Structure formats: structure tokens, C-alpha cells
Amino acid sequence: MTTWFISGASRGLGAEIARAALRGGDDVVATARTTDRLPADLTASEHLLPLRLDVTDQAGAPAAVDAAVERFGRIDVLVNNAGRGLLGAIEEVSDAEARSLFDLNVFGLLALTRAVLPVMRRQRSGTLVHIGSRSGFEGEPGVGLYSASKFAVAGISEALAAELAPFGIQSTVVEPGVFRTDFLDASSLSLPAGRIADYDGTPAHTTLDWSSQANHTQLGDPVKGAELIRDVVRSGALPSHLYLGKDSIERREALIERAHADIATWRSRSVATAHDDALASA
């Protein structure tokens, strides 16, 4: 039996991943900032351990991991799902707002991962699943700082995959497109305090209008997305990136084409920046 440890499991993709794991007969540690936010159907399962965890509380992660191991004996899969969004032009976002976002999306992820890894290294096995975003491989207007935090998640996951391979531990970043969750609700998405009127009518603020119109009408089905994540983990051969959703795949493919075009345009000049003696010996 596999033991899953899921942060941010009170709703959205985190809750659906917990449900998918339970349907598969696995044990689940479901965490949230307050356990009364966890859905009743989850807490009713004898295979679920509900735990209070705010991942921005550096002292909280080790205690939660200890409780999980005491109950289930091991942790096989860590799902770093806790996070939130931030809309607004980059110029509008204050340092304090940006740091608060990174405290949750990046440093919270790091703290929980550090707490779990000693368990997985002792086991010589484990799977890390980091919930990134389509915005984590493409900087888009109106979500620049959120994109930056998810770019960081992708880089961390790639490095962890290489660093942890000798211990039998895998790492993948899941990069969903737009899914029909509560992510666009005010409880998950914030706006900068200092709005700049000059951006009205530009792409940065068009994103604000889109978010209010698209809420709960997004293309992606979180139940199906969670089932795919569960099945990918069970397959035992994780991709470095799991592009989740039609829009995520289409945007990634478009970026690959753009990268090839950029390389082709400047290839000879770029290669020629090497020292002449290095080129001669190559």
C-alpha cells in the first residue's frame, strides 16, 4: 500500500488527488491550514490522516511528517500542492506582496520537501510531485510574479530529480493549464494593492477581466486530472514534466517551435562568441 502526503488538500486539485489515492486503496495524509476545511468525505475514511499544516510555518513541516510516519510507517509520495495566485502587472506588485507569494509557493514547498526527504532517503524510495503551472514554463502578462514562482518550482523539481536519483527517489513537476477549481476565487487569488491605471486596456489587466469571467468555467476537469496524476505515479516512470490539459500541451508545443526559430535565427552568431582557439580545437 502506498502512502501519500498531500499539502493544500482542502479543495481543488489537492482534494481530488486525495480522493483518487483513496479510491485506489492507498493511505493518505491530507493537510490544510485548518483541518475543519478538509472535505467530510475525506476525513470519513479510515485510510486518511488529517493534519493541520501551514507550509509557511517552518516548524510545522517536521512535526507533520513525524505524525505521518507514526501513523503509516512511511511516506511514498509527497504532493506539494499548497499555493496561491497573484494577478497584476509586475510593476504593480510590491516587494512585500512578491515575498509573501514566494513564501508559500516556493519556500513552503522547500520546507516540506526538506522535512520529507530524510524519510524517503532511509526508505531508498519515494516520489515527489510538485504542482506547478502552465505559467511555470511561459511568462504571461498579468501573472508575472506568479509565473516566476512556478518557474522556480520547475527548476527545483528538475534539480531534485538529478540529485535524488542515487537514492531511488523521483521528482516531477505537474504543469496544469486552466482547471475548474477554486483557484480563481478570492481565497486563492489576490491582487496587488497598488493598481496602475495606465495598464487598463493592456494585456496585464485583460488577465484580470478574464479571471473573473472564467471562474468555474475552465476547460480542465480536476477529477480527471487527479486520476492521471495518480496513474502516472503508479506507473513508476515519471516524466520530468507532466503537462496537464489540452491548453498546457498546446502552449508547450508552441514554445518549442518558438525556441527552434530563435535558435535558428542567431545560431551562427551565438556559436561564434567562443574564443577562436576553442573553435579551432572543437
Rank of each mutant, 00 (worst) to 15 (best):
L242E: 03
L112R: 03
A282V: 03
G245W: 05
L51V: 03
I156R: 05
L51M: 06
L164K: 04
D185I: 05
V143Y: 06
I263T: 10
G14N: 09
D182I: 05
A89N: 00
V106Y: 07
P62T: 07
K224T: 11
V233T: 08
V69L: 10
D198Q: 02
F102T: 04
L160E: 08
S149D: 08
V28M: 13
S149L: 12
G132E: 02
A214Y: 00
G25E: 15
S94D: 14
R84G: 15
D95E: 13
E46Y: 08
V174T: 01
Y199F: 14
S133K: 02
E140A: 11
E140L: 15
R124G: 04
D221G: 03
D36F: 13
V271L: 15
L128R: 04
I263C: 05
L13W: 08
S240V: 07
E91I: 12
G25P: 12
G12N: 10
S188T: 06
F137S: 01
R19P: 05
F102C: 00
L101G: 04
F151N: 07
D57S: 08
E91G: 00
L48C: 14
T113L: 09
S211L: 00
L78K: 01
D185K: 00
V79N: 10
I196D: 15
T34I: 03
